[in-house]
């Protein structure tokens, strides 16, 4: 038995990591989505627009730049799924949820920063996506994405 394991160490490692990725990654993703939904509901009253000429009906005392960013990585199992998908083409669901989570998280962090500064609105939302950490995963290229969300927070006068 031990001999079989030792002879096929690479295979066992591969399967083990895939199983670990499947369970841990799936759990982490579900938990992340739950947290995203909760915080989105909480911050729904802080409007964010991607245009610069919608102004609030209140006077604006000051404005400041707010940013939010996050780096999210995909798990081992989904990375295997995605590379299999590469053979046949089509939608890569694994990466769709990855970038979706990253964008929503970045926007939420930006909104949280805006709320801490007492803002009533965020103008001109911009989203940038970048692939980072290539060296952590040289062979497979894409593994983690960074999303930064930024905009101009408008703060109404106090009182």
């Amino acid at each position: 038995m031990l001999e079989i394991v030792l002879n096929n160490l690479g295979l066992f490692l591969f399967v083990g990591l895939a199983v670990l990725g499947y369970f841990a990654g799936g759990l982490a993703e579900r938990r992340h989505y739950r947290s995203i939904r909760e915080r989105e509901a909480e911050l729904v009253h802080l409007p964010v627009v991607s245009s610069e000429d919608i102004l609030p009906d209140r006077p604006v005392a000051r404005s400041c730049l707010v940013t939010g960013s996050v780096v999210v990585s995909i798990d081992y199992f989904k990375r295997i799924l995605a590379s299999l998908r590469n053979l046949f083409g089509g939608r890569v669901g694994a990466y769709e949820t990855l970038v979706d989570r990253a964008r929503r998280e970045a926007v939420l962090r930006m909104k949280e920063q805006a709320r801490r500064r007492g803002a009533c609105m965020v103008l001109n939302l911009r989203l940038e996506t970048a692939v980072v950490g290539r060296s952590a995963d040289k062979k497979r290229g894409l593994g983690s994405v960074e999303v930064v969300a930024y905009g101009t927070a408008l703060v109404p006068p106090r009182g």
């Binding site: 990725g21 841990a24 982490a28 780096v71 990585s73 798990d75 081992y76 952590a136 930064v148």
Partner: peptide, 20 residues
Amino acid sequence: MAGFKNLVGGELKGYTELLQ
């Protein structure tokens, strides 16, 4: 650390902080 985190997926806090 990011290499390990790459296996299970999720946020890479070290990178997030670094880029921030």
